[in-house]
């Protein structure tokens, strides 16, 4: 899951969102084991949400008859995850990066597809805010969720 150039069309935009969701599901596996109690529960819920988006995208892209990007066996972490603090930092990062892919899909979608992309962007942004609060990061919000910085 890397920051990329703006997608050129709907298939590429939604394909990008799918690769982000694959990576998010994988990352939460790493994150969850470093967390306990409520934070671990939140990580499990977030993982389930990303799985759900992933499955919906696979179905949608398959039905459209285009290329469906494949999942990878593993992903490179942006930094080592060794404790609670680094796990929370990764959770924030995963949500911010996934939000960026969904935001990039907005101009390439219309109608229900766009509403779904906005719902996904919003969910990612809200989870990023929750993780920042759990991690004690301030401010807990950013002005333009998903916008490349």
């Amino acid at each position: 899951m890397r920051h990329r150039q703006a997608p050129s069309g709907p298939a590429e935009a939604l394909g990008g969102a799918l690769t982000a969701e694959y990576a998010a599901v994988w990352a939460y596996g790493v994150i969850g084991v470093r967390l306990a109690d409520a934070a671990r529960t939140a990580a499990r819920r977030a993982e389930a949400a990303h799985r759900s988006r992933r499955d919906a995208l696979v179905l949608q892209l398959s039905a459209a008859g285009g290329t469906v990007p494949a999942d990878k066996a593993g992903y490179t972490l942006p930094f080592p995850v060794t404790d609670t603090a680094s796990a929370l930092r990764l959770a924030v990062e995963v949500e911010e990066r996934t939000a960026a892919f969904w935001r990039a899909a907005l101009p390439h979608t219309t109608g229900e597809d766009r509403n779904r992309a906005l719902a996904a962007l919003t969910d990612c942004a809200v989870r990023a805010t929750r993780w920042r609060r759990t991690a004690g990061v301030t401010p807990v919000t950013v002005a333009f969720p998903g916008r490349p910085t």
Binding site: R103, L118, T141, V142
Partner: peptide
Amino acid sequence: AALVGSIAAARATH
């Protein structure tokens, strides 16, 4: 679409 979407998401985070 992208800017308005970001604003909607930001308000949700608020």
